[in-house]
Design a protein around this nucleic acid. Structure first.
Ligand SMILES: Nc1ccn([C@H]2C[C@H](O)[C@@H](COP(=O)(O)OP(=O)(O)OP(=O)(O)O)O2)c(=O)n1
Ligand SMILES: [Mg+2]
Ligand SMILES: [Mg+2]
Length: 1168
DNA sequence: ATCCTCCCCTAC
DNA sequence: TAAGGTAGGGGAGGAT
């Protein structure tokens, strides 16, 4: 069914895995767009058919919904008894077991039927065969209520560990998640204390929902009596629309209610790693973080849509007034007076579900109420899990600790006690949410099951219920939305609500409303408790909620705020995470009172202008930020940092395409176009175990990001894909070292970036002062260069814990025994990293593009500042950088001109040195080392992409045409890593375009070229120069190409200075040197057009009087070309470049540049 | 002063 | 075994 029909265009897009053909995607787009405008129907194809989409699918639920709507079908937001088909990619096998009547089919059925124009037999699309005996095992017991091993660690475990020094870090740094749950700087208040204090300042709580017990609404049955459902404005056209008046929702009501365990695939075995075609779908279906992120985003959108509706009346308010304000229609008491008196004091409510996942889960596991419960993938309460081979938890933890210590300059950060689960049989599955009973033992959200069981051996686990979360969240939002739409969605279980208008209009008392609405929520959700806080700004509201939990409410009265804040631990402030808390703690600041005593400018000096001010305000309960009801999106991204295990570049490539497809889908769904593509990779840290402690996790990683600006905003999948693939090529990470991959698209059309308004945002000088104090080893004085070199050398040979070093390299350094090999293990086999690191001055990192290389200069550089400060880790700025030097040298133009017999190339011409080398450092080095350093540096400068820039440039001036001339150039101009030969093809009448070439093109240009080729496909054909494939490929199906992203390169490519690709004159770009180097390295023989282009660019510099740059560039060119012995084509090219430039020089200045007019080469002469 | 890139931090 | 996503705020430091 991959015949393309009805919709013209491309050919040969083959699907891979379960993924949709690109062609079909396009088709989808059309529907999407056409439907966007009106709800008109295109056909009745799906008349009588209703579908429910379960979990992640491709096409997405949203797309399927549109298709159904446009073609006469019905989309069910929740599964109903009369739902015709359930659509899923991955099937929870619990379902298979429990549902007999349900027909579960692949989303492809919809797409294919649409294509065929008729309803296809669904039997071929069944995700499972009902009667297959082998199928889904009923094996595991449902909830595993069971037998906890109460025996072993018997301790009830009193409160959490109280290692005040614990700190934690998120992300990849957080190897075992150990420090994720850093302890509070101040002992937590016993939860029990909260219970009756809940309504402290709100004695008049006449609310129905008392805070006293969580069991209050545990009546998990009996459908909501006064279900607030169906508020008028609630039917959104889009995501949530769907009538759906009745909500079964009762676990008891649906006997078969699947425990909806999003686990395990069905038809086939599980997808363990990203190489599995079904991995992405399966991963997303099981990823709680994916679900909450996605859900959160959709509720933000939901609110925005509700607000956009013209008709926003709130009939429910009348009932509210009747029930609450019955006695006092007119409010006169002082409380409400402040509301009425037009003072600008607002009533902000923050409301958040209590242990959300648990509350939802308990609806189906009512017997566990009142017990310590956690939601996790880990089945069974047994602590022991099989230990997979190769993991080394102790090592991972040790490395992690080391890194933390380096980052925070605190060698002795203790291991978090709670993390003690070093035992390789302790489960590292994360707890998404735990009940308050469990929290009493010290268990926290995000903690590992193993660690939690240590704290709370009786902990019961229940599985995820992602459908339930969506459902309950929906009920939460709908309930609130009955009363006001002044809602800022925070996440699926949480929002801010500005009650000011509501209270004003209804005259209802704040806290009465809060209890009323909380009760409604609890009822509507079938017994899920929530807590709410009220204050005059969002911060206060949040703090009040914290106080109110669980199942309570609290109001922070304006007058008492500052005082109220004082005993609050700083770490409890929103925006203060583990890193900030740790740093403050190191400064002896723990409570808000402590913080209140610090002058604002001190905080700003230490934490940055903005964040310093935020802290200053926050500890006083001050928060100026208004609620934002609809903040537009600024970026989209897709990340997978789990299950990433590749062996070959092809596998990587393939996965990247899947990710690209996914992000493209999301981008289109947003109806946005982006201008910046960023790829983020997690790379196994040197020394970290290959097998991570967490099964299929990412372990200790280094992060590499690189972005590619596009020339214009795009939502074109091929453009994105090309950018992504080229970024991958540039980063050139060994496939087997990858542990995580992410793609982000940003710089949306019409979205302006935030701009620093005030000057003086930079506090650099202050920081530098601080930092200088902190690192006595580092010299900032040029005169100390030799000493510096010595220091570096010593550092490398004999690592010293005292030595500052960058976190990235530290591990490498510590692995003293095998430092070089370790580091070379990436992509720099021959590199003598040592000499580099020895010889290079820190300040060298001129290239902002210098992104990642474990061996890179950045690595060996003594590390400057303490990490933990936000922002990029400061580089060491050695005084008198290259920039100044060249600037100085450029003082007099005359010096570049031909005197009479100049042209001595031999003198140590500083100008020939690559930018970024510290001349003084080099000068201080022995000759051989210097050579080596320069060579290494140059090698790093070899940029895969850069040569493309030459083309990009051309595209601006010369639209691509399918002329023979062009094709010649295409053939000639090889992508860097491409082997020489072009494979001959049967169809040799046609002009051949190597796929590799296409891939190397900048995205927009590539698309242009492809279009042209497509238009002229009679004369042109795309070929692939890879040995294993020699059949012609159709132009429009680059995806089909099995071409590797690149042959493993010897040299370590330096990330392109892709950021500077605007100037059409490449010589004016910052990365001109890289461009030229790459260009020269990329091929045996330059393309004439490029030569001419360069000459023209050079002439332009003449006219601009940019003689300094021109001079350096030509010397550089000469050197590079000269080094390409035998490559006489290049030698001649040099002449072709220099000659016209010199002519122009004579015309303009009456003199020539002091550069060689040709390359001395015997071979050239002979050939001549 | 402003932009850009890469990075860090936080939240759910 | 395990499912470590996603978006936004913001800082450092280089280029212009
Ligand atoms: N590390 C985390 C934190 C949260 N969540 C999910 C599960 C939570 O139930 C939900 C909401 O997060 P909250 O911070 O609101 O935490 P809870 O609702 O679980 O508890 P609380 O009562 O403190 O709000 O997000 C998660 O998966 N992993
Ligand atoms: Mg919550
Ligand atoms: Mg929450």
């Amino acid at each position: 069914m991959k015949r393309k029909e009805k919709f013209e265009s491309e050919t040969g897009f083959e699907g891979w895995g379960d993924y949709m053909d690109a062609k079909i995607a396009k088709l989808e787009d059309q529907f999407r767009h056409s439907s966007a405008s009106v709800g008109e129907k295109l056909s009745n194809l799906f008349a009588g058919v209703s579908i429910f989409v379960n979990g992640y699918t491709n096409p997405s639920a949203d797309e399927l919904k549109r298709i159904m709507m446009l073609h006469g079908g019905v989309f069910h937001h929740y599964k109903r008894p009369n739902t015709t088909y359930t659509i899923a990619s991955i099937l929870p096998d619990v379902k298979v077991r429990s549902i007999t009547s349900e027909i579960i089919i692949s989303p492809r059925w919809v797409v294919d039927s649409l294509q065929e124009g008729r309803l296809l037999d669904y039997s071929r699309y069944l995700l499972y065969t009902q009667h297959k005996p082998s199928q889904p095992k009923l094996a595991f017991a449902k909830v595993v209520p069971s037998t906890s091993r109460a025996t072993d660690v018997s301790k009830p475990v009193p409160k959490s560990d109280s290692d005040p020094n614990d700190i934690s870090r998120a992300e990849c740094l957080n190897v075992l998640g150990m420090l994720k749950h850093f302890s509070d700087p101040v002992p937590e208040e016993p939860i029990t204390a909260v219970e009756n204090g809940k309504h402290d300042e709100e004695p008049k709580e006449n609310n129905n929902v008392t805070n006293s017990s969580e069991h209050t609404m545990e009546v998990d049955c009996s459908p909501p009596i006064s279900n607030p459902k169906e508020p008028s404005p609630l039917c959104s056209p889009d995501v949530f629309s769907e009538d759906e008046p009745s909500r079964p929702a009762k676990a008891s009501a649906q006997p078969t209610v699947q425990t909806k365990t999003p686990t395990k695939s069905t038809s086939s075995k599980q997808s363990l790693t990203a190489t599995d075609p079904n991995f992405l779908a399966e991963f997303f279906n099981n990823s709680r973080l994916h679900h909450i992120a996605t859900l959160g985003a959709s509720f933000k959108q939901y609110v925005a849509e509700l607000r956009e509706k013209p008709t926003s009346s709130f009939p429910a308010r009348e009932t509210l007034v009747q029930q609450l304000a019955g006695g006092r229609a007119v409010q006169e008491d002082s409380e409400t007076l402040e509301t009425h008196s037009g003072s600008n004091v607002r009533h902000i409510m923050h409301i958040d579900m209590d242990c959300f996942f648990v509350s939802v889960g308990l609806r189906k596991h009512p017997h566990l109420r009142g017990l310590p419960v956690a939601v996790t993938h880990s089945r069974g309460s047994e602590a022991r899990v099989p230990s997979h081979p190769g993991q080394n938890r102790a090592l991972e933890i040790e490395l992690y600790q080391k890194r933390l210590g380096e980052r925070y300059k605190a060698p002795d950060i203790p291991i978090e006690s709670r993390l003690s689960a070093i035992d390789e049989h302790n489960s590292l599955s994360e707890i998404a949410s735990c009940s308050y009973e469990a929290r009493r033992c010290g268990v926290k959200n995000g903690m590992f099951v193993g660690a939690a069981l240590n704290l709370c051996p009786d902990l019961k686990t229940i599985p995820y219920d992602f459908d339930g979360y969506r459902e309950v969240a929906h009920q939460l939002y709908d309930t609130i939305a009955q009363y006001t739409l002044d809602i800022e969605a925070v996440s699926c279980d949480e929002m801010f609500v500005d009650l000011t208008e509501l209270l004003q209009v209804t005259g209802v008392d704040v806290m009465e409303f809060v209890s009323y609405v909380r009760q409604q929520i609890t009822t509507a959700t079938g017994g899920c408790a929530c807590s709410a806080g009220v204050g005059s700004n969002r911060l206060q509201a949040r703090m009040a909620t914290k106080k109110a939990k669980p199942n309570g409410q609290f109001r922070l009265v304006p007058g008492a705020v500052e005082e109220y804040m004082q005993p609050i631990p700083i770490a409890d402030l929103p925006g203060v995470g583990p890193s900030t808390a740790y740093r403050l703690k190191q400064m002896t600041y723990v409570t808000c009172a402590d913080l209140q005593s610090i002058p604002k400018n001190v905080l700003q000096t230490e934490f940055g202008k903005k964040f310093g001010e935020t802290l200053y305000n926050a500890c006083r309960g001050v928060d100026e930020r208004p609620l934002v009801y609809d903040r537009g999106r600024k970026s989209v991204s897709v990340d997978v940092n789990y299950g990433i295990r590749f062996r070959t570049a092809q596998e990587v490539d393939r996965f990247m395409r899947q990710l690209t497809e996914e992000i493209h889908r999301r981008l289109v769904e947003l109806r946005q176009r982006g201008k910046l593509v960023t790829v983020k990779l997690l790379v196994r840290s040197p020394g970290a175990p290959i097998e991570t402690a967490k099964f299929m996790g990412h372990g200790l990683c280094d992060v590499v990001t690189k972005s590619q600006p596009l020339r214009q905003h795009t939502d074109d999948r091929t453009v994105i894909e090309t950018a992504v693939l080229s970024l991958m090529r540039v980063m050139a990470i060994e496939p087997c070292e990858l542990r995580g991959i992410g793609i982000q698209i940003s710089k949306f059309q019409g979205v302006k970036q935030a701009v620093d308004n005030e000057a003086g945002n930079r506090l650099r000088s202050m920081f530098q002062k601080v930092e200088e104090k902190r690192k006595p080893t580092v010299e900032h004085n040029e005169t100390s260069v030799p000493a510096k070199v010595e220091t570096c050398r010593t550092l490398f040979k004999q690592p010293d814990d005292q030595q500052p070093c960058s976190s990235r390299s530290c591990i490498g350094l510590q692995q003293q025994a095998v430092p070089i090999q370790m580091r070379e293990s990436y992509a720099t086999p021959t590199k003598t990293a040592a000499s580099w690191e020895v010889g290079v001055s820190p300040k060298q990192h001129t290239s902002p593009a210098a992104t990642y290389s474990p061996v890179r200069k950045r690595s060996g550089v003594p590390k400057p500042a303490t990490r933990g400060r936000r922002g990029r880790p400061p580089k060491l700025a050695s005084v008198g950088g290259r920039k100044e030097q060249t600037a100085r040298a450029g003082g007099g133009l005359r010096k570049f001109l031909m005197s009479n017999e100049t042209k001595s190339n031999n003198s140590s011409v500083p100008d020939e040195l690559p930018a970024g080398l510290d001349l003084d450092v080099l000068a201080a080095l022995p000759e051989d080392i210097r050579e080596e350093a320069i060579r290494d540096y140059r090698r790093e400068q070899q940029l895969q992409l850069s040569a493309n820039k030459l083309f990009q440039n051309r595209a601006e001036t010369t639209p691509v045409k399918s002329s023979p001339q062009l094709s010649d150039s295409l053939r000639e101009w090889k992508s860097p890593a491409t082997p020489q030969a072009t494979i001959p093809h049967a169809d040799d009448q046609k002009i051949r375009v190597d796929v590799k070439f296409l891939q190397a093109l900048p995205p927009e240009l590539r698309v242009e070229v492809e279009k042209q080729i497509e238009l002229n496909k009679d004369q042109m054909v795309v070929t692939c120069s890879e040995p294993e494939i020699d059949e012609p490929l159709l132009v429009s199906s680059p995806e089909k190409s099995p071409v590797k992203q690149q042959t493993p390169k010897k040299t370590e490519p330096v990330p392109a200075a892709t950021e500077t690709c605007k100037d059409p004159n490449i010589l004016r770009r910052n990365n001109w040197r890289e461009l030229i180097e790459e260009w020269i390295d990329s091929t045996e023989q330059p393309y004439e057009y490029d030569v001419g282009l360069l000459a023209t660019n050079g002439e332009e510099l003449c006219e601009d009087e940019s003689l300094e740059r021109l001079y350096i560039a030509i010397r550089c060119l000469h050197r590079l070309v000269r080094d390409r012995k035998q490559a006489c084509g290049w030698h001649r090219a040099y002449e072709s470049v220099v000659d016209p430039i010199q002519k122009r020089m004579l015309v303009i200045y009456g003199n020539k540049l002091a550069v060689p007019s040709k390359v001395a080469c015997e071979l050239c002469n002979r050939v001549d």
